[in-house]
Design a protein around this nucleic acid. Structure first.
Lengths: 208, 208
DNA sequence: GCATAACCGGACCGGTCGGTCAACTTGTGC
DNA sequence: GCACAAGTTGACCGACCGGTCCGGTTATGC
């Protein structure tokens, strides 16, 4: 390929390595969480440690790239669910997909509590995801399927909550379905009682 | 090393140091989570690093002792709530206390997902706590306040779930009250729909 | 082919951490 | 008071980890 477009100044082997790296990192983070060493990831990808740092300046930026990627995948799923005829079912399916994602990826549960959030790339992806959740929630809410005071942000958070409830058995058993179901019932409008005088959910982190 | 056989009285200064150590570790773990260094803890307690290891063979055993201690505190709270006239209110208060505990202690949220569980000391304390939760749950359930298919184990897990939902703002704002409320509504029997065919909650971890 | 620069890789660096140890201090029983 | 074991301590060890660097390799344009 002579005169490749200006954007692709990467050499062919570099592209190969980068993809191997991303795949390996994704696997490794999912399995062992954020504390896998770069060496481990490099080895898994069949490349040298130095090559990893050629593509990502720090371990955090690598992790952030992968987390953001997964968030965007979930957002995409959510967007297609917006076409679904049944808003309530769509919302539940969205949350189900989200929990399944968390449960299959150890790094996610940690990403929620630790470092990676705060990275601009992750933040942007999270915002996109929240937007989709907001749309799904609004639809279900307008139809009266769920209580009216639930935000997209709430949905995202309750989703991670369900994951946490099922945490002890690392996926497999599907216990998380039980907890997602319980939580979803709490969102429904039927038994709804007014929420307590709530602090108005300060825009995520104070600043960071 | 003369046998550390039981009832061997500790020297007065050793007792002092041990207590200082426990207090410091409790603080440090709560603030920074499980990744505080032993040196940091020792410094905080005003003792030498070596002394820490004299009292606890490994970092994990120290952490386990403290986690178990806190679990027992919560269990004690639960036991007194068993006397409460209103089973539903008592259960809610129990969960509130549990979430507050988690939220105020960074190490707890990690303890749920990482290492420390599995330690026999922690396991024993967790079992005691589950027992109390079971009693509180049974009372509320018999009165029809909450759906009948909820176990004590469920309550404990949903409690940690609420904590996770509120995780982004480390306590202070009290956002967790919002999520605990939502979750508790899910437990109530009013809007209840049958739980999905659930895997019968295998006894916590396969082995780990 | 050949020149060249992009790219690779692993030895290496600075730092941290959990845990050990031998010299030293101190509480305690007599 | 004295002797001695119980207790303390911080220098030290080995392992590991994130990140750097430079000699060697290889894709690429001509």
């Amino acid at each position: 390929m002579p005169t490749p477009s200006q954007t692709h100044r990467l050499r062919a082997d570099a592209v190969r390595n980068r993809q191997a790296l991303l795949a390996a990192a994704r696997e490794a983070f999912a399995e062992h969480g954020m504390e896998v060493s770069i060496s481990e990831i490099a080895q898994r990808a069949g490349i040298g440690k130095g090559t990893v740092f050629r593509h990502f300046a720090t371990k955090e930026s690598l992790a952030a790239a992968i987390v953001a990627d997964r968030l965007d995948e979930l957002a995409a799923t959510g967007r297609t669910l917006l076409e679904d005829a049944d808003p309530e079912a769509a919302l539940l399916e969205f949350m189900t997909a989200g929990v399944a994602l968390h449960v299959s990826d150890r790094s996610f549960c940690q990403a929620a509590t630790t470092d990676v959030r705060g990275d601009p790339v992750v933040r942007a992806a999270a915002d996109r995801l929240t937007g989709v959740a907001e749309a799904l929630t609004g639809r279900a809410s307008r139809e009266g399927a769920i209580r009216g005071d639930i935000t997209g942000e709430d949905v995202i958070r309750m989703l991670t909550a369900a994951c946490q409830a099922a945490a002890p058995e690392r996926d497999v058993t599907g216990a998380w379905r039980r907890y997602l179901h319980l939580i979803f019932d709490g969102l429904r409008s039927e038994g709804a009682r007014p929420l307590p005088p709530l602090p108005p959910l300060p825009p995520l982190p104070p600043t960071a």
